[in-house]
Simulated assay, not measured.
Amino acid sequence: MHVQEWLDSVPAVAVYAVVALVIGLESLGIPLPGEIVLVSAALLSSQHSGINPIVLGACATAGAVIGDSIGYAIGRKGGRPLLAWLGRKFPRHFSEGHVATAERSFEKWGMWAVFFGRFIALLRIFAGPLAGVLHMPYWKFLTANLLGGICWAGGTTAVVYYVGIVAEDWLKRFSYVGLAAAVLFGLASMLIVQRRAKKARITEKETEPVGAGD
């Protein structure tokens, strides 16, 4: 079967559900590739007449907001023991250093940490649970969470969708290359975000006073 025919056979409802579920679970605090899934789905929508990019963006936003809100409730109830448990289960993402970095960001920036955290892989996972642990007022969290979710999910979907439309003729002629390009684009975007987050953490550690941890 031709790749384009196979892509056209994917039910739109399944795409919406997968995007909302993966982004929701990631926002809840489970390390999943939400950004890759969203980018790939947005590219698919530009080539799949049955997938509406507006509905896709709405599903992504709903998953982000609902997942973050559930994570907030869990963090508020579980407190710091929850972070310790997550650190044992997911040491790569919830190490003491990562938690400390995210906590400093929240204490310094407040609502802005929730808003801009939607665009940063590390804070996107931490935002909900950590805001609950730190007892941020829910109305502040919800406002920043909603605005961040709309800008991130809606903006990413729109940009990637229109990039796909512009490249539509090329993708039709080289469908296998186009499919590979979609995957590589998603992976590259995730790696770039992770690298920037890592550099930010290293820079922050280097600028800390020598006796700060004593």
Rank of each mutant, 00 (worst) to 15 (best):
Q194Y: 06
F141N: 13
H98M: 08
A113R: 08
V183H: 14
S46G: 11
P11W: 01
W112G: 06
L171S: 11
S27E: 11
V18M: 02
S49E: 14
V37P: 05
V39R: 04
G213S: 06
R80I: 11
A167I: 02
A158R: 09
L7C: 14
I125L: 06
A200K: 04
H135S: 13
E103H: 09
V114W: 12
G29L: 07
A197V: 09
I74G: 09
E208N: 06
E26D: 05
G148S: 14
V159W: 09
M136F: 12
V55E: 10
G79D: 02
E107W: 14
A73D: 02
A41Y: 10
D8M: 15
I70C: 03
A181T: 11
G29Q: 06
H98R: 13
I23M: 03
L134K: 11
D214I: 04
V15R: 07
S69C: 01
E168Q: 12
G128Y: 03
L83M: 09
G87D: 04
I54S: 08
G213V: 08
V37W: 01
E107N: 12
G132R: 01
E206D: 05
G132Q: 08
E5C: 15
P91D: 07
L184V: 13
I74D: 05
V114M: 11
S175C: 12
P31V: 01
E206L: 09
V99P: 02
G71R: 10
W6G: 14
L82S: 01
W139Y: 12
M111P: 12
S95I: 10
I66C: 11
H48M: 13
V193G: 04
A113D: 05
Y72N: 04
V15W: 08
E35C: 00
L130H: 09
V114A: 11
R195H: 05
A180V: 14
A153R: 10
R80H: 09
A100H: 12
F94V: 06
H48A: 12
L25Q: 02
G50W: 08
M111Y: 14
A17T: 14
V19N: 10
K77F: 03
G75R: 00
P129M: 01
F94Y: 05
F94S: 07
F115D: 05
F90A: 02
V163H: 08
A12I: 12
